[in-house]
Amino acid sequence: MEGSAIKISGKQKSAFLNKVKELLPDGGNLSACLTCGMCASGCPATGMFDMDPRKFLRMAALGLDDEILKTPWVWACTMCQRCIYVCPMKIDVPQLIYNARASWPRDERPKGIRGSCDAAAKVDSGSAMGLTGEMFTDTVVELLEEVQEEQEGFDKLQAPIDKKGAHFFVNQNSREPQMEEDEMVPLWKIFHTAGVDWTYGSRGWAAENYCMFLADDEAWEKNVRLKSDMVKELGCKVWLNTE
């Protein structure tokens, strides 16, 4: 798992280094990294693409912008933050990764993540699978009727959509309505049995947001606002996101 030596040659850049500085604790002193390796030793992505969190940080500190801004490792790091958790200086490596992702030309970022973000931007639901509010509503209404008719004790089961003033606004991952709709029913049953006051939204119901993973701030915010606007419109007190 030993990586190759870091070679410094040519003119050093400083743009990314400065961004790194702003993110480090105590005024961004780059010497905050003790090079202890706690981050790298506990990172499941260590060794992939000849990279690890410590190496990434050190290369940033050395001003090797070209190298760290083009390594595909930024897409193998899940930004899980375990490196911060174990770091004695609490250095935010995942923020570096996020900013490195954002520096990639948009059309060169992974097609799958980009496609999911773009699909969500085209519909009123925020669904990465492109499911509209109408499709979701139809699925829920039809499935609910089926359960009410066929399952004993659940003739009064509810799956409210756009219920104004409901306490909980509940998001649903697109995977269920799209691929395994019956998986939604147990959640409805639990709410029903516990007497929970909840609702879905006909718009902004989708839980996922791939624009965040794409490091596309603008699209990320648009996706979140679509959902938060729906929560506000309905006057719900708590927004429950199942993801």
Binding site: M48, A76, T78, C80, R82, P110, Y210, F213
Partner: peptide, 27 residues
Amino acid sequence: SNNYCCGGGGGFLQSGLKEQRRQYGKV
């Protein structure tokens, strides 16, 4: 809080890096 990430987060599932994702998930 000290748990390992499964390797499904951060967009990894949609990144097209299947081999790396599974290697990550081996932990």
